[in-house]
């Protein structure tokens, strides 16, 4: 797999540059307001350190891509943001990670409340074994809110799935194709109207057509939400993101800048090597 990726990536170099310029023109001019900020963030799994002193400021209504080789801690960082790492017994977090200036690891922050403001889409589509409608309304219902048909339609339209499923809302979410299931998971994440959506390699299990639908969707989602996406695929990061963070082995964040600068003129030599496919 990695070799294949590297090959396509070199062949597509020209394409990447054009895509970046397109993305720049639409959003780059807006002033950045920080939503999520990590300061000196360390994460340990038992004795192993997964993240080392990470500092990052993630801007509002932008797509921030997190790339890096396997095992560099990019998914760990993502799970820190909505405290899904709490589920892992041996995981320990030090330092500060703020959401709208509030440290999410403060004693008085309830991770359940945090996750109602920060939604997540997983690598493997994981719809509930329920109807499409129940999947979408789940987030609202656990908050004790009753979900109307309009809520369902709005979320499914937001996930670009409405036209495909509007006649079968009561059939099981598991009957959909992989790409549709992933968009259903996106609908589930946006239905309770969170502020941030975390995506952990959301297209890695999908075919290219389904993946490109999700990429187009991310472009629309960012109008209303802040998107943080972990990806293995550098073309994808270049195509869809405004900011790119590069983690390298050992859990170090080595470069974080506008996507165009990272891909065209990386400051760190190791990042240049990684992006041009010399390793990773």
């Amino acid at each position: 797999m990695p070799t294949q990726e590297t090959e396509t990536q070199q062949a597509d170099d020209q394409l990447i540059t054009t895509d970046i310029q397109h993305a720049e023109s639409t959003r780059r001019e807006q002033p950045d307001q920080t939503v999520l900020e990590a300061r000196d963030l360390d994460v340990f799994y038992g004795e192993d350190q997964a993240l080392r002193s990470v500092d990052i400021e993630i801007p509002e209504h932008k797509v921030t891509a997190i790339i890096g080789p396997s095992g560099c801690g990019k998914s760990t960082f993502l799970r820190c943001i909505n405290r899904m790492n709490d589920m892992i017994d041996v995981c320990r977090v030090q330092g500060e990670l703020t959401f709208r200036s509030k440290n999410v690891y403060d004693e008085d922050v309830d991770p359940v409340a945090l996750r109602r403001k920060i939604g997540q889409v997983f690598q493997k589509p994981n719809p509930f074994p329920k109807s499409i409608r129940d999947n979408v309304t789940y987030g609202l219902e656990v908050q004790g809110k009753s979900a109307t048909d309009d809520d369902v339609e709005r979320a499914l339209r937001g996930a670009a799935l409405w036209d495909e499923v509007k006649d079968q809302l009561d059939s099981s979410g598991l009957d959909l194709s992989g790409g549709q299931q992933q968009r259903l998971c996106i609908a589930r994440a946006i239905a309770p109207d969170p502020e941030v959506i975390l995506m952990d390699e959301p297209t890695s299990g999908l075919d290219p057509v389904a993946a490109s639908k999700i990429e187009d969707l991310i472009d629309e989602l960012v109008e209303d939400y802040t998107v943080v996406i972990v990806t293995h695929n550098m073309q994808q990061a270049a195509r869809i993101s405004d900011k790119t963070a590069v983690f390298l082995t050992g859990g170090n964040l080595v470069e974080f800048d506008d996507t165009a600068s990272v891909f065209e003129d990386p400051e760190d030599d190791r990042v240049e090597d990684y992006i041009t496919g010399k390793f990773g």
């Binding site: 359940v112 109602r116 939604g119 509930f128 219902e141 589930r188």
Partner: peptide, 27 residues
Amino acid sequence: VPDSVRNGSYATGATKWQTIRRVVLPA
């Protein structure tokens, strides 16, 4: 019942009991 489904529920802002009651037990 796969863990991915439980994680999906937690990440959607459900508590442990809501996850068990609404997702795990029905499955």
